[in-house]
Amino acid sequence: CKSRFEKLRASTDVAKKYQEAIRLYNKKDYSKALVLFDDLVQRYRGRAESEDLYYYYAYTNYKLKDYLSARYHFKTFADTYPSSPKAEECRFLAAYCYYLESPNYSLDQDNTYKAIEALQLFINLYPKSERVAEASKLIADLRDKLERKSFENAKLFLDIGDYQAAVIAFRNSAKDFPDTKYAEEMEYLTIKAQYLYAKNSLETKQEDRYNEAIDEYERFIERYPKSAFAKEALDLKEASLKGIEQTKATLAAYGYKNKETEEDEQ
């Protein structure tokens, strides 16, 4: 024997279905409501009730945490009924669904980029909306995530001992996010990576690379004279100077002369 719900689901009385779907929605029985809405949305296409119906439909998906479907339906609503009083809300929620689907910084950030884009579009479309402030805050959150990703992935190269890669990645990150909150730490780590890169190089290449580390230090200390990393940075500079002396001595002991290396390079 079929339950009342199953009977209703199979029936063709759309008006009754509509009423029941709204009742279920208000009772927060979203998964049952969705079953009915799925069917009704098709049948009500081109009728007066379809605007309200579609709004409920999108919200049902949202409440069920199916943000993928919800954002699609919110967007469709906003595109189909641009003059509806609910269009602004739906446009915002469509973007917000992307925001909710943006994962941890260490995973693929496709949805983060899409969320930023959708929120920016919302701000452009409704510059006077009271949701603009929230949208801006969400964008800031998302940008933060991208900065952290860039920083952590550069730091990974330092951790696994690929110092050359670390130097390049830190510089790229600083270039991509000029006002990142990691800027200071990142520039300090660039000195560290450059120092370690020099230290682990062939003797003949060490001098140039140590000098590069010293240059990095000078730039760093000029920009952040009171940095919390100032002491460690200075230690790295001094270690670099010492490294240059050492490598010169080693090369001399093996019969290398500075002139010869210069000639080689030329």
Binding site: N104, S106, N153, L156, I160, A165, A169
Partner: peptide
């Protein structure tokens, strides 16, 4: 899968 699980296996690194 977190970035570093994959990135640390990749042999093409910046600077090469």
């Amino acid at each position: 899968t977190n970035d570093r699980v994959v990135l640390r296996e990749i042999r093409t690194r910046p600077g090469q």
